[in-house]
Write a protein that binds this DNA or RNA. Sequence first.
DNA 1: AAAACCTTGTGATTTGATTCACAACTATTA
DNA 2: TAATAGTTGTGAATCAAATCACAAGGTTTT
Lengths: 206, 206
Amino acid sequence: MAKPNIPDIVVSRLPLYLQTLNHLLREGEEVVSSDELSEKVGIPAVQIRKDLSFFGGFGVKGKGYDIIHLIDNLRSILNLNQIWPMVIVGVGNLGQALIRYQGFARQGFEIVLALDINPNIIGTEIAGIVVQDVETMDTALRSSDIRIALLTVPANAAQSTADALVAHGIKAILNYAPIILKLPEGVRVANIDPVLKLEHLTYYLS
Amino acid sequence: MAKPNIPDIVVSRLPLYLQTLNHLLREGEEVVSSDELSEKVGIPAVQIRKDLSFFGGFGVKGKGYDIIHLIDNLRSILNLNQIWPMVIVGVGNLGQALIRYQGFARQGFEIVLALDINPNIIGTEIAGIVVQDVETMDTALRSSDIRIALLTVPANAAQSTADALVAHGIKAILNYAPIILKLPEGVRVANIDPVLKLEHLTYYLS
DNA sequence: AAAACCTTGTGATTTGATTCACAACTATTA
DNA sequence: TAATAGTTGTGAATCAAATCACAAGGTTTT
C-alpha cells in the first residue's frame, strides 16, 4: 500500500544502511553507533538517525544500535522477509549475466522465469532456468505470483514489453533499456542505465 | 575542473535530456518545446528550462529548442565530444556482458582494456579484447590516457582494486560491486547495484 | 552512588530545490 | 500591420531536505 508520509528519498537510503549493517554483522560486530555507521556508509550521522526515526526508535541512548535488531527492522520495513520471485525478459548478454548473478538470490530475489523472442535462445538452459517464448508470458505469469520484472530487451522493444508485463500483473520493473518508460500509476520503475551514469561522470572530467 | 556553481542534481538530469533529444532526432523531429520534452522525459517543463538556463539560453521564444543545436550544446557541456577509453576490471559474467554491450560505443565510451585475476580468463578474447593479468595494471594504465574504470570484481576485492586503479590515475569509477567505496577527493564514483534498487522497489509492494 | 561521558531522537533553523507567475520576445493568424 | 497565440527565461515564492543544537536518557568510571 501507499505510505505517503515517508519521503521517497528516505526510503532510498534504507537499503544502503541495510547493506552496510550486513557487512558489519559479517565482521562480527554487534552494536554500532550512528557515527560509526555514518563513517562506513558516507551519510551524516544525524541524517541516519532522522531517517530511522521515521519508522521508530531503534537505538539505545549512550550505546547505539543493536545490529541484528536494526537489520530485522529494516528488512521488515522493506518487505524483505520473503523470497521475491522475478521474471526477466530479454536473455541476451546482459540477461544471461543477470540470470547467473548470485547477488540476487543472496538477498532474497530469485529469477524464476526467463523470456525471450529469439528462437535460438528459447529452450536453452541458463543456471537452471529454461528460457521460454515471450509469447507464453500470459500463461506463465497468470499462474504465478511474480510482481517484479527485469527488463533487458533492446530499446525499441522496451515500451511494448513493459506494457505487456504490466497488463499481466507486474507491479515493479527494473529497466535496463536506455529509454524512459511511460507506465500507469501504481507501477514502479527503477532505471539502470550505465551510459547515463558515465555521461554524468564525464561532466567532472574537465 | 570543478564547476562548483552548478548543482549536481541539475547535471544529473542533462544526460536524460540528451537521451530523449537523441530519440526525437532519430524520429525526424527538428524542434521541440520544453512542454513536449517534459512529456517524453517525465520532468516538469519549467525545471527543464531552468536546468538549461544554468548553461545559457538555448531556446527561441515562441518556438522551442532546435534539437541538433541543443544536442550539440549538451554534448559539449558533458564533455562528450571525444571518445572516452575505459578499463574494466573483473571479467566474470557481468564483465563479459559489459564488454559485449554495444550501448557504450554508441555513445562514445569504449572499453579498451580488460583485466582479471583468474588464470583461466587471462588471455581469452571477448569482442576483440584480450583479457590481461590485473598484475599488469601498472604498465597498461601508465601508457594510456584511460581515466574511467568499470569495476566488476567480487565485493571483497572491490576496495583494494579501486585503490589500485586510483593509484594509477583513474578519476572516475562505475562501481558494480555491492559495497560503498572509500576514495580520495577528486575521484568520482557512481554505483550500480541492482539489489539496492530492488529493495527500494519492494518497500512499495505492500 | 555520584559524576562524567556518550549517544539517541527531535524541534527549530538553515539551506537547497522546485514551482509559480509573468515579462519579454517570436511566430502565426486575421 | 495589428492582434493573437505560443514559448522561453527568470525573479519571487513556496516547498522539501539537511543540518544544528540540545534535552533526555542510558552507560561507564570513580
